[in-house]
Computed example of a mutant assay.
Amino acid sequence: MPDAVDPLLLGQRVVAVLETGLRTATYKLATLMALIDHCIEHLPDDPAAARTVPIPDLAHRVLELYWRQVRPFEGHELRQSTGERARIPRAVTAFRSAAGPARSLAAAMNSAPPAYETAIDEITLCLAQQPLFRLQRVPGAQTGDRFLYDDSFLHSGISRSALRARGDAIDLLPGVAAGLARLAGLLKPALEIMWVDDVRRMNKFLHADVPDIAGHLFGRDRTALAAVRGPFKEAFGPHCFYCRARLPVDNPIDHVLPWSLVGIDGLANLVLACARCNTDKRHALPAVDIVDRVLGRDRDALEQIADQIRWPTEYQRVQAAARGIYRGQPPGVATWAGYKSSVRWDLAFAPVWLEGTTS
């Protein structure tokens, strides 16, 4: 195998496989999104390095993606597959039912741990038997062209015990982890567009006049985030994290690392914001000193809030994602530094948390 991967060529091959293959479910798209997020959060120091990826980790990320999507849309249950079994949505729906009225995935995991483990186990097996086994295959090919990971042990009938015997993991080929992480900003929006198109195709009632289906599939759950507002104001004061303006009662909660790039709802990635800064920042990558301030907040206070509202901080995950995102940025890229303000990213002035290796 080559020692490095051209990210552009890698992206072209990923898109080509998706566009030429028959997508009978949204599972391939979900798996790729999960794989990209894993690579961002576990970016190797050596761009040419291989990477072992636990399939249960991908299963959790896939569950996160479908958590909102399995809710009814205008009274309809959205089909995510042309088949009858709909294994992943059914596993997520069963978990939601077992968790009761929990609004967030984090709260559901706390309220129904056995149901969560059951869902992860079912999604793990489904990923191995379906999207991971077929993801690298082009129409008519008897075997996969392994340009992402070794799939030689996977097949549509692989058992849970056989999967465990292989360590419940896939091995990304050299350079793929770094390549996917660098492509996140381009690939993830493209995958979302494909996903929306597929859902429209699988649900005949979604004609052109139906409102924003993309927002239902990929929008942020502002109702759930409202639970953070009060405790954050008590702990950090009723001020915008970015400009320090005093906040009204119903101010926005902002994802510091953009939701469109890494969908992390942990408290460590959330801040109070004013409407002006929240609108101006939108999907922009923040200046690294903003992330430095976020990671420098009182962690004991965050943990107390986490215990109070049963919401994880995900501090290590946010730090790992930030490290992967910034180390994958080209020098000189513009980052959001505040209202109508930007600064150029320069790795030479990186803070301490950008150093070291992710596990």
Results as ranks from 00 to 15, higher is better:
M194S: 07
A181F: 08
L217M: 01
D221N: 13
G230F: 02
I253N: 13
V176K: 04
D221I: 00
A214D: 03
L217Q: 08
V262M: 09
G219Y: 01
D254Q: 08
P189N: 05
A181D: 10
W259M: 05
V196D: 02
Y242L: 02
G215V: 01
D265C: 02
A177N: 09
E234A: 07
F218V: 04
H216Y: 06
G185T: 05
V210L: 06
A235T: 03
G215Y: 03
V199G: 08
G185M: 12
A245F: 08
D265H: 10
C240Q: 06
L247D: 07
P252I: 01
G263S: 11
V228S: 05
V249M: 11
F232Q: 10
V228F: 00
F218Y: 02
H216M: 07
L257S: 12
R229F: 03
I253V: 14
L257W: 02
C240F: 13
L247V: 09
P258S: 12
G175C: 07
H239E: 04
I193M: 04
H239I: 05
A184N: 09
L206K: 04
R201Q: 15
D212L: 13
V199C: 09
L180Y: 13
I193K: 10
P238L: 12
L183T: 04
V176N: 05
R182D: 04
F241C: 00
L225K: 04
R246Q: 14
N203M: 04
M202W: 14
N251H: 06
V228D: 03
E234Y: 03
V196N: 03
A235V: 14
R200A: 04
A178F: 06
A181I: 12
L187T: 08
P211F: 01
W259Y: 14
P189T: 03
L180A: 08
D221K: 01
A226N: 15
F218K: 02
V256H: 05
D254M: 06
H239Y: 11
V199F: 10
A181T: 08
V256R: 04
G179S: 05
M194Y: 06
C243H: 09
E192K: 15
A190W: 14
I264H: 05
L225N: 01
A224E: 10
L225T: 09
S260A: 12
N251L: 00
G179E: 12
V196R: 13
D198L: 12
G179V: 01
V262Y: 15
A184G: 07
L247P: 09
P248V: 02
A235E: 13
G185Q: 12
G263V: 00
H255P: 12
D198I: 00
K233M: 15
L186K: 08
G219T: 02
G219P: 03
P238A: 15
